[in-house]
Write a protein that binds this DNA or RNA. Structure first.
Length: 441
RNA sequence: GUGCCCGUAGUUUAACGGUAAAACUCCGGUUUGUGGAACCGGUAUCGAGGGUUCAACUCCCUCCGGGCGCCCCA
């Protein structure tokens, strides 16, 4: 009964020979050193985050589409063009998360975290997805590490989140980062500012490039960081958000800056910084890597801000003041300054296990298990047969000791420990091996 | 989504309108227990699909993928 229709399966397999064996556009495999680089970064980031009082959280990679559409804002590219959406068999409209913040707020509301001592502070790490055109440091699946404080409108939380984030970046090896900061006000003052700004651009409408004329309708704030030369000139005389801040926003912003100064964090106020996501209020900032790359163009490696109205936007009954810091891990790990943080699980092999002959090979795995139980990190290449080749690999890997286990040793239950540096070797009984190794360094 | 450039073995590179060359890596073999050895051998439907042509990897188109800029953004 096992004769399944082999012919048909083979046929279909042959017909669909042209399988695309590459990973999807903008998505890649991460392995070996690169994997360790990511893992090492995460461990360090986690360590710093915990010191600052952040707790871990992981949310699903998929969320209901509305979590993002209602928060990030329609009219932004992230929602209109870049979100991966899908319809489940049950008819739910889900989306691969394009960022962490909205999902985090959803979790906060869902679990009634307002009953916990405020603020609730989380760190969050994982892949996010944007259907974007891949470019330098830009992938369709990339990893973000986020720090967020939810439930407090205090300016010191802005400062804390920024400080913790900057510490992580420094631990990762960043040196000459600059942080751009601005305040775009709250609902008290932002409306008035936008009105004023719009009026200003209207006055210069005939000089405004067409792309920015369009933005005047969709999102006037974004004209501020336009790359059009013409617009840049016009922007010089544009009203700036800070001078339109209401007293409480002004106070908040001033305090944030004072904290930054007290902590020795270099910043510069960039009045043209507005950020793309529409949920931001008050503080917005970006951490920029100045042209360390060959081409010298700056790359934003982290960004964030306050999002005091997000909770209600996604359907919460009341506002939850919050602030967050989000880092692009791929960009950090890919930076020239990134110092390869090594994951804790990676141990430098102390021994290279060499086996010779079938009798020895048969018992090899047992010996490796003895070493593993004694927590002796080793390397081996059991598939190789020649002792010369195996020694060569040990040499190449710069492993201090080689363990030679051949036919003779297998029969005698012993093993040769060879010091790679001076080529001296000792024969040691298997049951004394661990003890013997303790005396070596 | 858009503009420019690009796409040959695992990798880095050749060549030519007439069905691909080399280096390194990898795998296999030869010398059957001590430091990257040597020698031999193997591995490409020239990103995919069309078209032009007697003939295309080489010319043209479409698509896919990559790099850079724009939009946008980590």
């Amino acid at each position: 009964m096992n004769k399944i229709k082999t012919t048909t399966t083979v046929d279909t397999a042959k017909k669909s020979t042209k399988k695309d064996l590459s990973s999807p556009k903008g998505m890649r495999d991460i392995m070996n050193d690169e994997y360790y680089a990511f893992q090492g970064f995460f461990e360090k980031a986690q360590e710093v985050a915990v010191y600052y009082g952040f707790k871990p959280i992981e949310t699903p990679i998929l969320e209901h589409e509305e979590v993002f559409t209602s928060s990030i804002g329609e009219g932004t590219d992230i929602i209109d063009k870049e979100m991966y959406t899908l319809k489940t068999k049950g008819g739910d409209h889900l989306a691969l998360r394009p960022e962490h913040t909205a999902a985090l707020m959803r979790a906060y509301i869902e679990h009634g975290m307002q009953t916990m001592p405020q603020p609730v502070m989380f760190y969050k790490y994982g892949p996010v997805f944007r259907h974007d055109k891949p470019q330098r440091g830009r992938y369709r699946q990339f990893s973000q590490f986020d720090l967020d404080s939810l439930g407090s409108d205090k300016s010191i939380m802005d400062a804390l989140v920024i400080k913790a984030g900057m510490s992580i970046l420094e631990e990762a090896g960043a040196e000459n980062l600059s942080i751009d900061i601005n305040s775009i006000g709250d609902k008290e003052c932002r409306g008035g500012y936008i009105k004023e700004l719009t009026a200003y651009y209207r006055k210069h409408l005939n000089q405004l490039p067409s792309i920015d004329r369009d933005r005047l309708k969709t999102n006037p704030l974004r004209i501020l960081d336009s790359k059009e030369e013409k617009t840049k000139e016009i922007n010089i005389g544009a009203p700036d958000a800070v001078s339109f801040l209401c007293p409480s926003c002004k106070k908040h912003f001033k305090e944030v800056l004072e904290y930054l100064e007290a902590m020795g964090i270099q910043y510069n106020i960039n009045k043209n910084l507005v950020r793309g996501l529409s949920y931001y209020t008050r503080t917005v900032f970006e951490v920029i890597e100045q042209g360390a790359a060959e081409d010298g163009s700056p790359l934003t490696i982290a960004s964030g801000g306050r999002y005091d109205y997000l909770a209600r936007q996604i359907g919460g009954k009341k506002d939850v003041p919050a602030v967050g810091f989000s880092m692009g891990v791929d960009r950090i790990v890919g930076s020239t300054w990134y110092k390869k943080l090594s994951p804790r699980i990676i141990k430098k092999p102390k021994l290279y296990f060499i086996q010779l002959g079938s009798e020895a090979k048969l018992k090899s795995l047992n010996i490796i298990e003895i070493l593993r139980k004694a927590h002796v990190p080793i390397a081996q290449s059991l598939s190789k047969d020649s002792i010369g080749a195996q020694l060569a690999i040990a040499e190449k890997l710069q492993i201090p000791y080689a363990l030679i286990f051949g036919q003779k040793e297998a029969l005698e239950n012993s093993v040769i420990v060879r010091d790679m540096s001076n080529r001296s070797q000792d024969t040691v009984k298997l049951d004394k091996l661990i003890e013997y190794l303790k005396d070596t360094k």
